[in-house]
């Protein structure tokens, strides 16, 4: 029996093979995520026993618990999961395209552009427009900046290296613009902007879930649909072209998926760091680098980190509700260092 399971349609619109070991790892990750969700629902300023959590989820819980779980905790948890998965998958895609381990959604300016737009919105509009426009503004900022990077890097075709260098420059330009906006605005607005930039899922409601879910789901599925192209991209332009891939077209559509995912995540939750860069690497250590297993593993790991980070952020320093962005690295980095150390001879 082969180690791999091949998933392929007759006329291949998608095709990948799954390493069986990687599948078990992914299964374990999913179970871990579900356990994480249940604990995350139970813990907080009101403790809810596991049995009651399950009851509420199945629809016959006590009404006091029901309010806490359904109105406060669950939307926040769902948003964390979507944000984490989006950022991680976005990072995994960019690492394949740019073929640089330091690539993350920051690199082509998505997150920095979104941040600049959001900070401009906070500081300049002075509350004349509803704060509900913010995710859209941030998303547009991210899309605009990423397109700018892409266009500036295009010269008779694309080179990943040029894309990366120009991305770094435009990103730091957007960073400078953000600082500039904050300096040019009153202190109170600047503090609000700073809180947003750290990244938080505080105050997420079902309304956010409903806005974000179709978008995230659509692009995550699209990303899974492109797995074979990701595998080809990672081999280098020449090889990818050699096996018959329309390389520029695919690169553009993959970048678009990555930008759409990261832009929406940043729009809802602000600049949550580390997940987009590190979750794909952790996944690589766990399941290897074939994207059929890597992409889901990245997504699940990313979701788990933001989930746990938010759990830590709202329970550890009660009554302070610290932005989740502070904890993504505090939780993720030690785990990553452990993986790095464990696989030191690999």
């Amino acid at each position: 029996m082969s180690r791999f399971i091949v998933v392929r349609k007759k006329k291949p619109a998608f095709s990948f093979h799954l390493d069986q070991k990687a599948m078990y790892v992914n299964l374990l990750l999913i179970i871990a995520l579900i356990i994480g969700i249940i604990f995350s629902i139970g813990l907080g300023s009101i403790q809810i026993p596991v049995a009651d959590v399950l009851k509420v989820l199945l629809g016959w819980g006590e009404s006091t618990y029901e309010i806490v779980v359904l109105n406060l905790r669950l939307p926040r948890i769902v948003v964390s999961i979507m944000v984490g998965a989006s950022l991680a998958v976005s990072g995994a895609i960019l690492q394949a395209l740019i073929r640089n381990p330091l690539a993350s959604p920051d690199l082509i300016g998505t997150t920095t552009g979104a941040t600049a737009a959001a900070v401009a919105f906070i500081t300049f509009t002075d509350g004349t427009y509803s704060i509900h426009w913010m995710p859209l503004i941030a998303l547009l900022g991210g899309l605009f900046t990423a397109s700018l990077t892409y266009l500036a890097a295009w010269r008779k075709g694309m080179s990943p290296f040029r894309l990366a260098l120009i991305g770094v420059s435009i990103s730091s330009g957007m960073g400078a613009l953000t600082v500039f906006f904050m300096l040019a605005s009153p202190l109170q607005k600047a503090q609000q902007a700073l809180g947003w930039m750290t990244g938080t899922v505080y105050g997420s409601a079902w309304q956010h879930v409903v806005t974000l879910l179709p978008w995230t789901l659509a692009f995550l599925l699209l990303a899974c649909h492109q797995i074979r192209h990701l595998n080809a991209q990672e081999l280098g332009d020449d090889v990818a072209q050699g096996i018959g891939m329309p390389i520029e077209k695919k690169r553009l559509s993959l970048i678009a998926i990555s930008v759409a995912l990261a832009g929406a995540a940043v729009g809802i939750a602000g600049g949550i760091s580390f997940v987009g860069l590190m979750a794909p690497h952790m996944a690589r250590k766990l399941v290897g680098s074939s994207y059929g297993a890597l992409l889901p593993a990245s997504g699940i790991l990313g979701a788990m980190f933001v989930l746990l980070a938010d759990l830590a952020a709202r329970t550890l320093f009660v009554p302070l509700d610290i932005p989740a962005g502070v904890f993504t690295a505090a939780i993720g980095a030690p785990f990553f260092m452990y993986l790095l150390y464990k696989s030191r001879n690999g």
Partner: peptide, 12 residues
């Protein structure tokens, strides 16, 4: 990778 992880950890 270890540099990026350590940096992310300390800055958090």
């Amino acid at each position: 990778l270890s540099g990026a992880a350590v940096a992310a950890f300390t800055s958090s």
